[in-house]
């Protein structure tokens, strides 16, 4: 009884739980895009690195990813910082063509390095929390790890929003996004701000990876689908708007969940892309963002 109501509701709830993680991934991407106008094709590879780092620590110490996720964040912050300083800064000012290719190359290197080190096998971890379900009423149930990751992702998303809107770093970053030529004239160290922004964006991907580890499986190419989804989110949210990307992440989660519910799981990614193409062709400035495209 009332199935017509509970089944979609469950679908929407599941979608929101996944969407929170998407939101974190998308916000990282949006921060990087906003400050640097760089489409980071290595974002998925960074997420994959975060997952493997968490996996290694988990195998060595047995500490649940929900406690040790900051490690992945710190690691990926430095990876992102180093990537910017070593690879992206030398080619700043080149056409975005080159940046896309460079990050694509980096993604290939990281993915294949992971394959070389860890092999192509699928890995999964098992923590006690995984078997816990929270029941709300007779029909609705929520898997506990998803709820935990939802909470952590939401807190981090709010923290990221706070950093970008309230701190001096955030103000500098937004100034660069607004006008990359005027910002240095105002005394902003563009290189440093961009490097930190790239680091924070990568850290967001790494932490999302750590949070995904218990509820997902791990293999070298795991990042690809999240990379593609983060493109969708960034476009949906309005290129470079991090709150837009966050909302887009939640929306994407719900859309995917409902698509899987009614059409089957295999269509979820296709629907993402159709949505993406529709937004790009009808309203390229994004649905949720205010910035121009």
């Amino acid at each position: 009884m009332l199935n017509w109501f509970y089944i979609p509701l469950q679908g929407i709830l599941n979608g929101l739980l996944t969407g929170a993680l998407y939101a974190l991934i998308g916000m990282g991407m949006a921060l990087i895009f906003g400050v640097m106008r760089i489409v980071n094709f290595a974002h998925g590879a960074f997420l994959m690195m975060g997952m493997y780092a968490t996996y290694v620590v988990f195998q060595a110490t047995g500490v649940s990813p929900y406690y040790q996720f900051p490690l992945a964040g710190v690691l990926l912050f430095f990876v992102g910082y180093a990537t910017y300083m070593g690879l992206l800064r030398p080619i700043r000012g080149q056409v975005d063509f080159m940046v896309i290719l460079l990050t694509m190359g980096l993604a290939l290197i990281l993915t294949d390095a992971a394959q070389l080190v860890f092999g192509a096998d699928y890995h999964q971890i098992n923590i006690p929390l995984l078997s816990k379900n929270i029941h709300i009423g007779p029909q609705i149930s929520i898997n506990a790890p998803w709820l935990v990751s939802f909470g952590i992702a939401m807190v981090l998303a709010c923290a990221l929003y706070w950093v970008v809107t309230q701190t001096m770093f955030g103000r500098a970053a937004r100034a660069i996004a607004q006008n990359p030529y005027a910002a240095p004239l105002m005394g902003i160290n563009v290189n440093r701000v961009q490097a930190i922004a790239f680091g924070i964006g990568s850290a967001a991907a790494g932490i999302s990876g750590a949070l995904l580890l218990p509820v997902f499986y791990l293999f070298p190419e795991v990042g690809n689908q999240f990379k593609l989804k983060s493109f969708v989110m960034v476009v949906l949210g309005g290129m470079g708007s991090i709150q837009g990307a966050a909302i887009a992440g939640l929306v994407l989660g719900v859309v995917e969940s409902l698509t899987s519910l009614y059409w089957g799981n295999e269509w979820a990614l296709a629907v993402d892309f159709v949505l993406f193409i529709l937004v790009l062709s009808l309203k390229p400035s994004g649905i949720f963002g205010s910035q121009r495209a």
Binding site: L102, G105, L106, A107, L108, I109, D112, Q115
Partner: peptide, 11 residues
């Protein structure tokens, strides 16, 4: 891991 060479070549 031969695809590695692609990545290195691109970079």
């Amino acid at each position: 891991a031969h695809l590695l060479i692609y990545g290195v070549l691109i970079v």
